[in-house]
Design a protein around this nucleic acid. Sequence first.
DNA 1: TATGAATGAGTATTCATTCAT
DNA 2: CATGAATGAATACTCATTCAT
Lengths: 210, 210, 210, 210
Amino acid sequence: VQSEIQTADQPKPSFIETARRAQIIECAIDAIAELGFAQASLAQIAKRAGVSTGVILYYFAGKDELIRAVAAHVYATGEAFIRSKAEQQTAREVLLHTFIAGTVAFIAAHPNHGHALMNIIRSGRMGGGAPRIDPGLHASREVGCAEILTWGQRSGEFRPFSVPVMVVSIIESIDAIPPQLVRDPNLDLDAYARELIELFDRATRADTPA
Amino acid sequence: VQSEIQTADQPKPSFIETARRAQIIECAIDAIAELGFAQASLAQIAKRAGVSTGVILYYFAGKDELIRAVAAHVYATGEAFIRSKAEQQTAREVLLHTFIAGTVAFIAAHPNHGHALMNIIRSGRMGGGAPRIDPGLHASREVGCAEILTWGQRSGEFRPFSVPVMVVSIIESIDAIPPQLVRDPNLDLDAYARELIELFDRATRADTPA
Amino acid sequence: VQSEIQTADQPKPSFIETARRAQIIECAIDAIAELGFAQASLAQIAKRAGVSTGVILYYFAGKDELIRAVAAHVYATGEAFIRSKAEQQTAREVLLHTFIAGTVAFIAAHPNHGHALMNIIRSGRMGGGAPRIDPGLHASREVGCAEILTWGQRSGEFRPFSVPVMVVSIIESIDAIPPQLVRDPNLDLDAYARELIELFDRATRADTPA
Amino acid sequence: VQSEIQTADQPKPSFIETARRAQIIECAIDAIAELGFAQASLAQIAKRAGVSTGVILYYFAGKDELIRAVAAHVYATGEAFIRSKAEQQTAREVLLHTFIAGTVAFIAAHPNHGHALMNIIRSGRMGGGAPRIDPGLHASREVGCAEILTWGQRSGEFRPFSVPVMVVSIIESIDAIPPQLVRDPNLDLDAYARELIELFDRATRADTPA
DNA sequence: TATGAATGAGTATTCATTCAT
DNA sequence: CATGAATGAATACTCATTCAT
């Protein structure tokens, strides 16, 4: 189907191009996760990929585009991962459980992805003050979480609370995991997820009438 | 007390040295908060202080030490700020309220301090992989929070939960505020604090028997 | 005639080779005229030709040879253009008029050719200090102009003057047109040519005896 | 007098700063004259000055500013040189003679200055299309020449002609000298100046009535 | 023939740091 | 104490060129 909407301006990427871009993105993720965003220079990324820095700039218009591609890739794989787990759920409470458990499971499955993304997001804005990645990516995650909360409040399962504050607390509590995982690779993420689910279940649920 | 542990190698700092170090630290905080950690070069910090970069390196062994001093200063002033509010409290529940409200109040009173510290912490590790600031600083804050939670669990006011997980969630939920405050300076921090208190009150308190 | 001096090492160029070289040269002219010599990279030229940069280096030994070919092409077409106008003229004075008017007419007919050539010539020497184009090309143009002047001096139509100085002044005065044409595409080139003819007519003609 | 208008924002440049800037400008002139504008990298200029490239960027905000400073310096010294010769002249015809002779004399006195400036001017526009040097510099020279011609036309000494065309022809005829001087350092510039004066004297002067 | 992939030398620029004064 | 001068390593990026396919 994708080939049907090809245009002359954007020819179908070759196999090798797709593979190289994927390889470079993976190496960038590793470099950022291990060295931190500031130290992850093109030279470092190229070294991990076993190529010259020119290759990176051959496949990406610049470092900015590479970083955006990395973020988009992590968000896309993460969203697909979580969505595949969430599809069969309906109850609001269970939806929130699935959101938390799914995100933590994604971090467990791809620890560098989560850590790299956190490094990118938390490294601040670019020189001009522009965000380093498409704000829509992050927003879509927050919106997904916010919708769950709003639905729950409407249905009466959740108590009244400020949705934006709760969204930030949930996401930040989850996003704090990757750095901890670096310090202690044996961290029990299943237990961590259960703790967070219990925490935010109690924080959100409506008071049961006597 | 500090002078009591002076040695011949570390003579008592002169008044001017103390003043200069404080001035430079304040300017570094402003620079980091306004420009972001990556853009806060020594030249920028020096410009704000109205001195040459050499002065900074005269009073600090290097940029790393300056950053560590900045972090230590923010932690110290923050701890003093919060501790002064917490001293008269005794009830565990109220202690947690005070911890949250006090930290938020500190952010409100010194927005640049909080923002700069977050920028430093979230900018990742140094070249060699070493943490950019003394881990003990962050630890002492976590320990303070952990003690509150542990006491509450012992007294039965708090339900059983993983203290480390709860500590991280509380602290991260608070530390998410400074970046939001930059985006929206009119953010209602009192309301934000109340939301967090309610959130973590419900998340931590023991189930009341029927 | 060119095929008569073919050797085994330089087989007769195929039709496609001739066409490709011509196409690439035209695209190079456009790129140089529009972007300036410094910005006219092989990639830019290739993009305009709709081919890969490898094609250019398949037909030209390197960028230097391409540039030389561009200059040779512009000189050749320009000389043919002017010569076709000058053939029927005989009077020395009229010959000079034709040289000026013809060159300006060539610029008007092929503005990119003139502008590109000026960009090449005026971009200075190559890395080693060698001229970027065959000095003979420029020389042949100067010789053509010089012959006109010398003939006129011999016949007494022209006053005595330094032929090299006059040649340079005439040619530079004409070659100043393409950059002006870029700034103001509506420049009246007929009027410009008339001004130059009047200028150099007065500058060259012999004093009429009382 | 200059110190009287000093402000706090632009402190008086130190002796060493003035000297270094002058030295770097001279080395840049030499590099551009000898290597051509495109090959005159900061590294080349720094090598000639016997310093690291960092020094150049310590005294100039960037390469662009250095180039502008070079152009401004050449224009300023050239204008002062010519103006000092022209001050006592009054007759329009003699003024034009002085303009030509003075400019040629400046080229003779500082061959690299003229050649470097020509290289800069003729190297085209910058990446974005912006002119590489302040257009006002070049304009002021053209305006000076144009005023001479206009005055002469008003007084009747000069015939009617297009002043802009004549200005360009005069200036281009003079500016063609530096490249010739590189090829033949023994070029007789006095004779060259006399030829140009005679040329443009005849080209501009009014017809004498019978 | 022609392409796309890859390289390596070269570009300007930033910045922490050193040091003589 | 403090400055301004200078350095050198690192940064992202450009581009002509080579080569296997």
